[in-house]
C-alpha cells in the first residue's frame, strides 16, 4: 500500500467527482442547527459529570480558597463574612492544637501506614504462590471485607473491644495471664488492669493505628496480589536455574518486579493516612481528639474549628495548609521513589 492511501484523500479527488445537485445537499437553516448539535453532542453527553463536578468539586474548592481569607461564622449568613487577609494563616501558625494535630497526623500516618505494607506484601506473595487459585480468591475477598465495611461500624466495634472494664481485649489479656504455659508472659497484666486504651493519651494513638492497619491491609493485599500475578513464570525459572531459593526469588525477583504496584499503593496510603478522620473521631467520641488531644488529627481539628466552633474561615485555612502538606509529602515520595517506581512500566 502506498503512503497516499493512508493520508486523507487528496484534493484532486474532490474535483474529479461531478458535483451533486445542490438541492440534495444544502438546506441552510437545518444544516446549521445540525452542525451545532453535532459539535455540542459530546459536551451534552459529558455534561452530567461536568455539572456535578463544578457544583460539588470546583465551586467548593475555589470557595474555600476565598473563605480562607475571611472571618465567617456561618450562622450569621453569607453577609456575615469579613475579609481578614492572611490572618487565618498567621493564627494557624502559632496554634498549639494545630501543631499537635500535625504531629498526631504524621505519627498515625507512619505507624499505621508502614505495617500495612510490611504485612500485605508477604501475605500477597504467599497467596499467589502457595495457595490454590480458587482458595486464593476466597481468602483475598475475606481480607478485603474490612476495607469495604463502613468505617463508623468498624470504629464502633473497636470502641467496645477497647472498653476498659468490659472490653474483650482486656478480658483476653487477663485470660492469657491465667493460662498455664504462656501465663508468665502476661504476668504484668493484672497489675495494670484496667488498661484504658482510649482514655490515656499515650495509648490512644496506638489504638487508632491498630484499627487503621486492620482496615486497610486487605486493600493492599489485593493490589499486591494483582502485582505478583503479573510476574511471568519464566523469570522465576531463570532464577531457579541460577540457584535462587524461595526467599531469594522473593527478594531479588518478585519484589523488584512489583515496584510500580508498591509505588501506587504507597501513594494511596500517604494521601489517605494524612487525611485520617473517622477512626480517631469515633474512637475519641468526637471529644476534642481525646485526652490531651492525642487522637486529634488535622482533618479532625479542621472539622472541630469549622463545625463545632463555627469558624469557617480558619477551618478553610487549615484545610489548605493540610493540602499543602499532603502535596509536599507526596512530591517527596515521587522524587525519591517515583523514577524507580515507574520503571516497570517502561
Amino acid at each position: 500500500m502506498s503512503d497516499q492511501a493512508l493520508s486523507p484523500a487528496p484534493r484532486s479527488a474532490e474535483t474529479s467527482h461531478p458535483p451533486l445537485p445542490e438541492t440534495h445537499f444544502i438546506r441552510p437553516p437545518k444544516k446549521r442547527g445540525r452542525r451545532l448539535f453535532n459539535s455540542l453532542q459530546p459536551w451534552l453527553f459529558i455534561s452530567p459529570f461536568i455539572i456535578i463536578f463544578c457544583l460539588f468539586t470546583l465551586f467548593p474548592l475555589t470557595f474555600s480558597v476565598y473563605l480562607s481569607f475571611q472571618e465567617w461564622n456561618p450562622v450569621t449568613g453569607l453577609s456575615g463574612m469579613n475579609y481578614v487577609g492572611v490572618q487565618n494563616y498567621v493564627e494557624a501558625y502559632d496554634d498549639p492544637w494545630l501543631w499537635k494535630s500535625l504531629y498526631n497526623t504524621f505519627w498515625l500516618a507512619i505507624v499505621s501506614g508502614v505495617p500495612q505494607h510490611l504485612i500485605a506484601v508477604p501475605v500477597a506473595y504467599l497467596l499467589v504462590y502457595a495457595v490454590r487459585s480458587s482458595l486464593r480468591h476466597v481468602l483475598t475477598a475475606t481480607m478485603f471485607i474490612p476495607f469495604i465495611t463502613s468505617t463508623v461500624a468498624v470504629a464502633l466495634i473497636f470502641y467496645s473491644i477497647y472498653s476498659a472494664n468490659t472490653g474483650i481485649l482486656n478480658q483476653m489479656l487477663l485470660g492469657a495471664s491465667k493460662l498455664p504455659l504462656i501465663g508468665a508472659l502476661f504476668a504484668w497484666v493484672p497489675d495494670v488492669m484496667p488498661i484504658k486504651w482510649l482514655t490515656k493519651s499515650d495509648l490512644i494513638k496506638p489504638a487508632i493505628a491498630a484499627v487503621v492497619i486492620w482496615k486497610y491491609t486487605g486493600f493492599n493485599i489485593v493490589i499486591y496480589s494483582a502485582g505478583f500475578v503479573t510476574v511471568p513464570q519464566d523469570v522465576y525459572d531463570a532464577a531457579k536455574v541460577d540457584g535462587c531459593n524461595r526467599l531469594q526469588q522473593f527478594w531479588h525477583v518478585a519484589l523488584p518486579m512489583i515496584r510500580p504496584f508498591i509505588f501506587f499503593a504507597m501513594t494511596l496510603t500517604i494521601i489517605g493516612n494524612l487525611q485520617l478522620f473517622e477512626e480517631p473521631f469515633i474512637l475519641t467520641s468526637g471529644d476534642t481528639g481525646g485526652v490531651g488531644q492525642a487522637g486529634l488529627t488535622t482533618s479532625y481539628y479542621l472539622y472541630l474549628v469549622g463545625w463545632e466552633w463555627l469558624e469557617m474561615g480558619a477551618a478553610a485555612a487549615i484545610s489548605w495548609i493540610l493540602f499543602l502538606i499532603i502535596a509536599i509529602a507526596t512530591s517527596i515520595h515521587f522524587y525519591f521513589n517515583g523514577r524507580k517506581g515507574m520503571e516497570g512500566n517502561r
Binding site: 484504658k196 482514655t199 490515656k200 493519651s201 471529644d287 476534642t288 485526652v291 490531651g292 488531644q293 472541630l304 463545632e308 466552633w309
Partner: peptide
C-alpha cells in the same frame, strides 16, 4: 471544649 473536654482531662488523667 477547650476547658472541659480538653485541659480538664489532662489534669485528671
Amino acid at each position: 471544649d477547650v476547658v472541659l473536654n480538653g485541659v480538664l482531662r489532662e489534669v485528671l488523667n
